[in-house]
Design a protein around this nucleic acid. Structure first.
Lengths: 112, 112
DNA sequence: CTGATCTGCAACCACAAGGTTGTACGTTAG
DNA sequence: CTAACGTACAACCTTGTGGTTGCAGATCAG
């Protein structure tokens, strides 16, 4: 559990990668089905190079993987990192609930 | 469930707010216990104004709330948005698992 | 009142982000 | 072989981000 934590810069890259609507949509697309970069690029109203950059950002964040298939580059999802991010946010939320629980306990004790 | 979805720009702001180590730490701190901006600022090796900006980013993302307490500004956590973010990431992961399930089903059918 | 403290905001700066176009290279189709 | 396609990468521009300093306005202590 502790071992699958990421370094600060890795979390930075991960959340930064998710902070763009186009990139989140790319993640959705390749989670549903792996696609080539050019196939992806056709979906968006921007240049091929721009989409290529978005994929590179996602790859550096560990959210997708690329794999050569002849002259194409097949992009597919990597759900592991996604899972880690969700669990980190859960842990933040949990801290809140622990604290709320502690306050409740304190109030209950004061009433005795 | 559909009603508590956010707009694209809101998700952008949310994940962007989380994409900085200092800001994630501020979230942790104020989830544990609400604090004034100056108290927070003492924890980090940067100017008061910088911390103030970070808090502003978190506030625009809906991750924290500010509340005047005399001359101080009390910052406390807002776990609702955190929860939404975690569930969005879960839904992305779920798409992957649905797809994996469909592939398994397809393979099982081919074997008959 | 006076002075210290907490905050808000504007101006400024260096650098990274997100987009463009252009060029080059490997691969497949005919 | 040649042409078309998919990709990679560099140069460039504009905008935004993260930091600074400095100043002004509230508020509390004495």
């Amino acid at each position: 559990m502790v071992a699958d934590q990421l370094a600060d810069e890795e979390w930075d890259r991960l959340f930064h990668a998710l902070s763009d609507t186009t990139r989140r949509d790319i993640v959705l697309q390749v989670m549903r089905q792996g696609q080539s970069i050019s196939t992806l690029a056709r979906r968006y109203d921007m240049s091929f190079a721009a989409v290529q950059k978005h994929v590179a950002v996602l790859e550096r964040a560990g959210l997708v993987h690329k794999e050569r298939r002849g002259r194409e580059q097949h992009v597919h999802g990597a759900p592991v990192v996604l899972h880690k991010a969700a669990r980190l946010l859960d842990s933040y939320e949990l801290i809140w609930r622990h604290r709320a629980q502690a306050i409740d306990a304190l109030l209950a004790e004061e009433e005795t």
